[in-house]
Structures are given as C-alpha cells and as structure tokens.
C-alpha cells in the first residue's frame, strides 16, 4: 500500500491530474464549500462543525507523518494535542486575568496573540515529542504502541491533578485569541484561518514526503535493515519525524482550544489518540489527505448517526471493521484506486 506514490517521480506530467489528485482536490473543495455554504445559509453551527473537521484533520496530519510515512503506530498523540491546547489556554488565561505567568527574567503576562500561541504550542509539542520519541523509539511494534500510550496517560493524569490550571475541570478561554487583521470571533473568518493552516500543513508534509528525508522515512517504514545497509540510521530519521509530528498535532490542539474556548484534560485522553488513528484508517493511512477524509467522515457520522441512535459508536465500529477487512486503502484508496508507482 502506502506512500510510495508520494516520491514517485514522473507523476502528474503533462498537466493531467491523477485520480488521487482529483480526490484530494474534491476533499479540499468539499470542506471549503461546506463551510462557506453553511455560512451563506447562516448555519453557524455547521461552520463550527467544518472548523472542527479541519482542526482534527491537522492533528491527524501530524500523526500521518509518523504513522503513514514512518510506520510508527503512536497511540499517544493526544499528548501533543492536549499540550498544544494547554499552551493556548494557559497563555490566554494569564493575559485575560492580568496575572504574571512568570516574573523572572522579565514579567510575562501571557498573550492572546495566535501567532505567538501557535509557535509556543508547536515548541512545546516538539519538545514533548523529542523526549517521548527518544525513549519510545528504543522499542518497536506492540511495545512502541504501549509506551506511547503510557506517556500519553502520564500527561493526562498530570493535567487532572494539577489544580493551578483547572485540574479536572479544565480551563476556559473567555475570549477567542486574536489574529492580526482578522476578527477571529466571526466563525467564518476563524474557519478560513484554520483552513489556511490545514492546507499549509498538508503542503509541508507533502514537501517533506518528497524530500531526501521523506525517502529515508518511508524506507524506515518498509525495511529498517535495508536502510542501515545503505548507511542511514533509522532512529534519527524517525525521531525527527516524531518531533515534527508532535509540533503539528500541538498546533491543532491550540486551534481546538480556541474553537471551544475551553481546554480540559479530555484533550489529552487516550480516546482522542484512538480517534486520530481511526481518522487515518478510515481515510487511508499514508495518503496525504487521509486525515481530512477520515475526520470529515467521522464527524459526519457522529453527527448523523448520533442523532439517530445513542449507540452510534456500535454502528461506527462495524464500519471501521469493514474498512479494515475490505478496504485497506480507506476512503481515498477506494476512490482513487491503489497507489500509482512511478
């Protein structure tokens, strides 16, 4: 399966789009069209729903870098999502309450500026991923899954038991953080901003996947022994991917905090780690747009089935089983066909 397509050379020659590119374009236009359509019809709730899909797709895109391209099944990506959320929540909390976050070496009262918050969230996510990755990457397979889960749970319980920032109750952000030149409280402006971030992140991942780094990363998924034998150590390549991945997912967490104007330990819970994995399986692990397809389908089903039955997760489970058993390439694999090679 997976991402050989991304590095295949003569793709899209002569100006004709491949089927995968058409599917990707349809997904992107679908998201934007849905958001703008809902806005035109004054359906604020649906604009917010589209924004949520886009944010979760960013989080999933971060995971896709390590899972889809590097083959690392991280079951702890809620950690980066939640840390990004708390980075946003804590910075805004101090700014909105005029309390100093720290007083040395200078007095810092937090900030409500999104660009600053985003950079902070990404730095925190990257740092956490560096530590967790360096320790987890000593293991492989099931042990890797378990140790990433364990780190995620550690951070979850820490957040619950730390009263300074709300503990179990979470931390409200009374006013959505600001972005220069935009009114972020206007749902459609915030939606547009999130879409720009989403497509920038997908562009970044596409660029990485095609680079020398991406070639080594995708080789690490397929055959670590061979990678060593051509003189490339898989560990370093995978760790760098893990750090970038943590930063991207943390950025999504910061946006999610702003969407809900609220951060709570639930952003750190293993349920969320599982949902991110489900997005990728649904969408088609290793396909660039898998997180968007998967998050879109998941949120749509949650919304539609959830209205019909309280047990929508049961029916959703059946669907997931079907995808795993019969459509390994997920939605995108189904629509775009198998990977094109060269």
């Amino acid at each position: 399966m997976s991402a050989a397509e991304v590095t295949a050379m003569p793709e899209g020659r002569g100006g004709r789009m491949t089927r995968a590119q058409i599917v990707n374009a349809a997904l992107a236009l679908g998201l934007i069209g849905f958001g703008l359509g809902a806005w035109a019809m004054d359906e604020t709730f649906l604009v917010t729903l589209a924004t949520k899909v886009a944010i979760l797709a960013i989080a999933g895109a971060g995971l896709n870098l390590v899972l889809g391209f590097g083959g690392l099944v991280s079951f702890g990506h809620a950690a980066y999502f939640g840390l990004g959320g708390y980075a946003s929540g804590i910075l805004a909390h101090h700014a909105l309450n005029y309390t100093a976050m720290f007083e040395w070496p200078f007095v810092f009262e937090g900030t409500t500026s999104m660009p600053v918050i985003w950079l902070t969230a990404m730095a925190v996510g990257a740092l956490a991923a560096l530590v967790i990755g360096a320790l987890s990457l000593r293991t492989t397979g099931v042990y890797f899954i378990m140790i990433t889960l364990a780190f995620g749970q550690m951070i979850f319980y820490f957040a619950i038991s730390w009263p300074a920032y709300g503990g179990e109750d979470g931390l409200p952000i009374y006013v959505r953080n600001g972005f220069p030149g935009l009114n972020t409280l206007d749902p459609v402006q915030f939606f547009g901003l999130v879409c720009v971030v989403l497509f920038a992140m997908l562009g970044l991942i596409s660029m990485l996947a095609r680079s020398r780094f991406g070639l080594a990363l995708q080789a690490a998924r397929q055959n670590r022994q061979r990678l060593m034998a051509v003189g490339i150590r898989p560990g370093g390549v995978l760790l760098v991917a893990f750090v970038i991945s943590g930063a991207i997912t943390a950025l999504a967490g910061a946006l999610y905090a702003d969407l809900n104007r609220f951060v709570s330990p639930s952003m750190l819970s293993w349920h969320l780690s599982g949902e991110l994995l489900v997005f990728l399986i649904l969408g088609g692990t290793g396909r660039l747009f898998a997180p968007l397809a998967g998050a879109g389908l998941y949120i749509a089903l949650e919304h539609l089935l959830g209205g019909v039955s309280d047990h929508w997760q049961f029916f959703f489970g059946l669907l997931l089983l079907g995808v795993v058993l019969f459509a390994r390439g997920g939605v995108i694999g189904f629509l775009a066909g198998g990977k094109r090679h060269g």
Binding site: T7, A8, M9, M207, L208, R210, S211, R212, F213, G214, L215, A216, A219, L227, V230, G231, I232, G236, V237, V240
Partner: peptide
C-alpha cells in the same frame, strides 16, 4: 536513489524533491 542518498551522507534535507535530484 535511496542507496545513492545513503552514500552521499545527506539524508536530513527537507525541501527539494529527491526524485528530481
């Protein structure tokens, strides 16, 4: 190409497409 890249010793390059190198 992966092998040639390994020999070059430069795998931490993130921008240019490797299949156009």
């Amino acid at each position: 190409v992966l092998s040639a890249q390994g020999a070059s010793g430069a795998s931490f390059r993130f921008f240019r497409p490797v299949m156009r190198d």
